[in-house]
Amino acid sequence: MASNPIDQFKISKILDLQVGSFDFSFTNSALFMVVTVATTAAFLILTTSGRGLIPGKLQSLSEILYEFVANMLRDAAGAEGMKFFPLVFSLFTFILVANLFGMFPYFFTFTSHIVVTAALAFLVIGTVIVYGFYKNGIGFLKLFVPDGVPVALLPIVGLIEVISFLSRPISLSVRLFANMLAGHITLKVFAGFVTSLSSLGFLGIVGAALPLAFTVALTGLEFLVAFLQAYVFAILTCMYINDAIHPSH
């Protein structure tokens, strides 16, 4: 029995695949990536295949998701930012569905691994840097020079801006990773209390009511966190893209 709250994050191989010295095995993490992509893509594509003028419930859901992300991006980065809509939409739905799948017991949450969230964060920052220089040339560096700052303070402010820019991928990845990790550990710990207390006899069963209530409440909270972290990731992506489009602020 996996009573250790860390065990749920263990990566286990399903299909062994070694290339040279690298281990590219198909694991439980990879399985849930495939499941996430397959269900999300299938849902979005199948529910809209009717192209109903008057949408059904499921088509409505797809459209709401579309408009939610589209409004988020348009509000943050303007009409020009819409060329990054597929990226933001993919990131949001991918993370959201992965987080929500993680709420099923025995399902693996691949967003609770720092390497996954870091890869997504660097994808965002990489896109911002590449597009920023492509669009603005050297003018992209104005991002680090805020308007209206005295010349004497410019080196210090510039340094702060550079550090804050460099910390973006770190904060972006660690926020998602830590939230998913901590939430799942907390749930597991409280759920573990229920089983260990109730094995102590009658008083233990009575006492287990409290952690059980906590577990129920935390489950609700975790659903909120699952959505919120996907949202935060997406909205920050939108804001960073806005920086790439309009570097002078």
């Binding site: 590219f24 198909f26 694991t27 990879a30 495939v34 809209t48 990226l87 739905t93 691949f110 997504l120």
Partner: peptide, 23 residues
């Protein structure tokens, strides 16, 4: 390496499906 490879494959496919079909 395994996580990165499968992430790249699945997310890449997902991005492609979103950008070319669903959206």
């Amino acid at each position: 390496p395994s996580q990165l490879l499968w992430l790249a494959l699945t997310f890449g496919l997902f991005y492609y499906l979103m950008a070319k079909v669903a959206l």
